[in-house]
Design a protein around this nucleic acid. Sequence first.
DNA 1: GTGAAAGCGCTAACAG
DNA 2: CTGTTAGCGCTTTCAC
Lengths: 335, 335
Amino acid sequence: MQQPRARITIRDVAQHAGVSVATVSKVLNQRYGVAADTTARVQAVISELGYEASLVAQSLRNHRTNVIGILVADLEPFSAELLKGAADAIRGSGFELVVYSAGGRPGDMVGWERRYLSRLSGTLVDGAVLVTPTVVDVRYGAPVVAVDPHTGSSGFPTVDADNLSGARLATEHLLGLGHRRIAMLTGRADLESAKQREQVYREALAAAGVPFDESLVRVGGYDAELSTRAAHELLSGPERPTAVFAANDVSAIATLKVALSLGLRVPEDLSVVGFDNIPESALCTPPLTTVNQPIRTMGERAVEMLIRLIREQPVERTHLTLATELVVRGSTAPV
Amino acid sequence: MQQPRARITIRDVAQHAGVSVATVSKVLNQRYGVAADTTARVQAVISELGYEASLVAQSLRNHRTNVIGILVADLEPFSAELLKGAADAIRGSGFELVVYSAGGRPGDMVGWERRYLSRLSGTLVDGAVLVTPTVVDVRYGAPVVAVDPHTGSSGFPTVDADNLSGARLATEHLLGLGHRRIAMLTGRADLESAKQREQVYREALAAAGVPFDESLVRVGGYDAELSTRAAHELLSGPERPTAVFAANDVSAIATLKVALSLGLRVPEDLSVVGFDNIPESALCTPPLTTVNQPIRTMGERAVEMLIRLIREQPVERTHLTLATELVVRGSTAPV
DNA sequence: GTGAAAGCGCTAACAG
DNA sequence: CTGTTAGCGCTTTCAC
């Protein structure tokens, strides 16, 4: 076992091979104008020393890096699932993937996407996929695709899912089961997806002639902790709802836990519907009835679109909306 | 909407503010020795221009970046789950996270971890978590923690799960159900975890006095495609096994699909046990009996350990092995 | 065929 | 207090 040693640079290689750094660089990049035996000698030293060019130094010089960035505020089930799809699209494309995540609660850091994009684009990545960004006003040099952004028609190409149909399916499912006191845990007010899900919920209730009770609507913020608090308020009151439509699965699962802690049985005493269909939604007890969003496909499409943009190939549709569907599992029952 | 424009650099800021780049740098890094009004003017320009320092240029200069790297060969269920745990550990630590993934099938790229580490360490990241690395012979300047590595006692600090107990639980579960023709889909020969799972399988069968049939052992390589082929061979023969122990869930799920395509009912005609307990294992039909590996916790512990290493704080145990347990679901039944 | 030198964006010494 | 200079590791002219 060797001692920890400093990074091996192109200069080390040059010295060992008895050539200049310029020559080593030429060998690395397979440029013409290097004698065959010099090339061989340099390559021998490279593999002997285990040298690899620094990505950072390279990308400071070159402007192409063949690396795609995925920028997320946090690694939670939704973004993790999206990454699997992104990886599917990357495979065999010749690009590599860098995922950049701040270590924070989304609420603490408005504008993270602009910061990250600034810090990375032009160097390190040739383009980026922004996951649930809220600030999308500035255009940068590098191509960008937004997944589930602030507004559906931003300047960026976007990929999202059909929140309208999904939310309608969810609400009407509950209505169809005979529920009338249907609460909602809303999402992040700064995201279009959250607005749409809430809007449809209100419309569907109105269309069914259900008298609206504003106290039944609470902010869950797509966040477990916030949702837990909100669900607790909702379910511990005297006139509690018989059903909850949560704006995403994380909120729905939090609701399930709160119900359990309050001694409520799901679905006998309370029906719960989520949104997203993250893997965790099938694992909880009872398994969650939810709206499937093709998260993985969304990641795949976003990366495919980005690669076309980077290669300056034409992109047929710059605003993709994928279909959603209701997945009925065990967390809902007739009232 | 503005035109795409080149990245804004520190020089642009300096020009607009009428100062030198050095001064801007001092303002950025909150160094002493800058007049209050100069600071104010520079900051005004910074926010006006929306300037953010290039991470790449910064990390080429500085050696600390406050960024932790997670290096994975691919983003599949196991690594995606691990990332969630890594994110849990990062939150509030002041570090940010960069995940680096090649876009390739693991088999195509032996030594990826050494390459990545070389390319990133010393610059861009202060330390790295290597996920299922196979080549761990070289020590670098930056601290490294390996998750589920080639060998349990490498020079690196490691985090893994108790493969021995887990595999024993799985095999004995099948044995206890009365199975005697128990096939195995092995993992990646270059990983310690795979060797251990296979070894225990052989031992447990021997201990139960089951005559050993070498033709019942096939390589699944932790890979869906490889496993599909191997499972097909295993299950389409005349003397097919009544049970399969797959070295991981991806292999097990592939086996389920092959069984279905062959008209075999699971668990009536064939029992299948997996390993890992990735979320997908509960989602398939039938839900998979598997060995739970606390993947998320493994990611969390690895990052915690890495942060201590980076901060040069003492680390109590440099080789963590977390417990595994059997999760019985619907893919196994008495013979 | 090879190397010296400039420069990518930034920070740290050091002069002024 | 501010600017000049050097240099992080690399690539790319452009002389030699």
